[in-house]
Design a binder for these strands. Structure first.
Lengths: 346, 346
DNA sequence: GCTCGGCTCTGAAAGGTTTCAAAGTCTTGG
DNA sequence: CCAAGACTTTGAAACCTTTCAGAGCCGAGC
């Protein structure tokens, strides 16, 4: 009995609606896609039929025939990192303004998952893909655009690819952070970040090295603590390692590749009895909302998060609508926000 | 010239692959879907043709014909809230184990966006929808399952619907929080949360009232501060309001509907010179990772986040694969985690 | 040598929508 | 009263894949 009601496929299609409304298939389709060219009376009849049959357009069929998707995807590096959800907000804002919807995917810093999602999205024939890549050398970053799925790389500048990118100058960001620490008189400075497959981690480190060099010091002076991911948990682990060092060899300042690491580091250090910033000054990166609310408000390098997302989405939209679109590389400038974790309360 | 290369639609289809490999359409399809029933030699030929033509399966066509989607969606209340991204991780874990992919959508506490996404997902004919609803009375929560798209409600228990739900006992959670504050001797207690359209906000408040009643007090003693959303920014706003009150009328404790509010409240109060917990004790809800790392480590009501997501996904999978699936209402129990924001450092 | 089974492969049909050229209807002006 | 033109509506073809009944082929058993 109700067995039939519960199963899929019993949903009415365009054909059933046409029959119920006493019009042809084409007319129903017109009501759906070009309502202005259907007489008000007919339209009302069709709409009534749709409502009473509970018609739901089959998007697969629409897309197959029409050849275009109304969806855009953002493949995030880490959905648990507020930085990326803020970027996603910017993406969504721009997409909505253009009448598109956004699907979010989370690679979770796993290259295999990233590859799986890229394949899936290409098969889905989405309008375009925004991505903050784990693996910026993935062949898919070239093959998707080559086959017709526009790709925009977010928060990363990748040269030569068949795509636009929107980034913040991470090298400069690293320089700002270290310059600030040097100015405060720190001698032994650590860089906490990893894995090195992630572009941001490398660029920020290189920026840090630059700053040391510019200050007349060897870039090898940077004490590198490599983590397995950019998470709070890994930050705690790094804290454990740092706090375990004898005070004479322990760095007096740490620059973290992102705020999650910094927050974890901070938390662990405090709970192990180190004072921040007296025993250890900490600089984070991203300036997420929680950085300011931390146990010791965190000095951090701020990036224009929503703007990043919005700009990326706009480039993507241009690429898929503008026939003579040119690939661009937009770069924003980061800004150092100084708080207690380096400056102290003075 | 290259104009042709850049446009969509030039991707090779099953037909082209069949021609290139010198086999029929059916065989190519078999290689794709039942490789074991194709001879190794033929399979190799077909795979070579696919690789050289850069064949990408058209998922719309597949889905249209096969009638099934390999995708499952989680429509989140707020992607910027780490609580929900943790739930999403649980969802993804379970989905991946079953060979499905997850698309994340963010309603951002906006009922209209929620409705739009539900329509979109239904049109996409996804395998099923997991949702933490803004509007738990949305007609779509009934119509989707009625038409064949399974729905599971996450972090909310909704009665009588045509769907499963997985929730944490929010009433109990509210009771735990207030009982704790009463035990510490607080008299004037505020509840910070809103809007009241969100189920969790109401349940947690009702739990708070229960606790007051059980302690022999009037439930009207609860000072309600209604916010427009469950965000850090709104929490700051609430802090502003609270701190503005004369000390004699100001509550001595605040229970917030979630940790974001609590963190915002905490941050604002501290920066306005109130001491936590001496002047104002604060209890949050969710126990997100940042609660522990806050300026004053936050007492909070912990929920089993990943488990929630995993269980929800499993129920959904059961619903779409098991013919005699029964709708269930799973409820987990929350747990109070006491930290400095109420207990002090003693 | 013939039949039977098992293994591969084939090709037409189907799935729900959009498109588009053509047909139909109505109004207006001569 | 007719022709032209504007506005609506029609229905077959196309989109790309999967499915499935059946054809072809080969070796085994009698």
């Amino acid at each position: 009995m109700a067995d039939d009601t519960r199963r899929r496929g019993h949903t009415a299609g365009v054909k059933a609606v046409a029959a119920a409304a006493g019009v042809s298939l084409g007319t129903v389709s017109n009501v759906l896609n070009r309502p202005e060219m259907v007489s008000p009376l007919t339209r009302a009849k069709v709409e009534a039929a749709m409502a009473s049959l509970g018609f739901v357009r089959n998007e697969s069929a629409r897309q197959l025939r029409a050849g275009s998707s109304r969806i855009l995807a953002y493949l995030m590096l880490d959905a648990g990192n507020p930085f990326f959800t803020d970027v996603a907000k910017g993406v969504e804002e721009a997409a909505r303004a253009a009448g598109l919807s956004v699907f979010l995917c989370n690679s979770n810093e796993d290259a295999e998952r990233e590859a799986d999602y890229l394949d899936l999205l290409e098969q889905q024939r989405v309008q375009g893909v925004l991505i903050t890549p784990v693996d910026q050398h993935s062949s898919r970053l070239r093959s998707l655009p080559a086959r017709g799925t526009p790709v925009v790389v977010v928060d990363r500048a990748i040269d030569g690819g068949e795509h636009c990118s929107v980034a913040v100058n991470d090298i400069l960001g690293g320089e700002l952070a270290i310059a600030h620490l040097l100015e405060l008189g720190h001698e032994r400075i650590a860089y906490v970040g990893g894995p090195l497959t992630i572009g941001q981690v490398v660029d920020r480190r290189d920026g840090a090295r630059n700053a040391l060099r510019k200050a007349g010091r060897s870039e090898d002076d940077l004490i590198e603590i490599t983590t397995g991911a950019l998470t709070v948990a890994e930050g705690r682990g790094a804290g454990q390692r740092l706090a375990g060092l004898p005070a004479s060899r322990r760095p007096t300042a740490a620059f973290c590749a992102n705020d999650l690491l910094a927050l974890g580091l901070l938390q662990q250090c405090v709970s192990l009895g180190l004072r921040v910033p007296e025993d250890l000054a900490i600089v984070g990166y991203d300036d997420i909302e929680f950085a300011e609310a931390a146990a010791v408000p965190l000095t951090s390098v701020r990036q224009p998060r929503q703007l990043l997302g919005r700009t990326a989405a706009e480039l993507l939209l241009d690429e898929s609508s503008n026939p003579d679109h040119e690939h661009q590389r937009v770069t924003f400038t980061p800004e150092l926000v100084v708080r207690t974790s380096t400056r102290g309360t003075t």
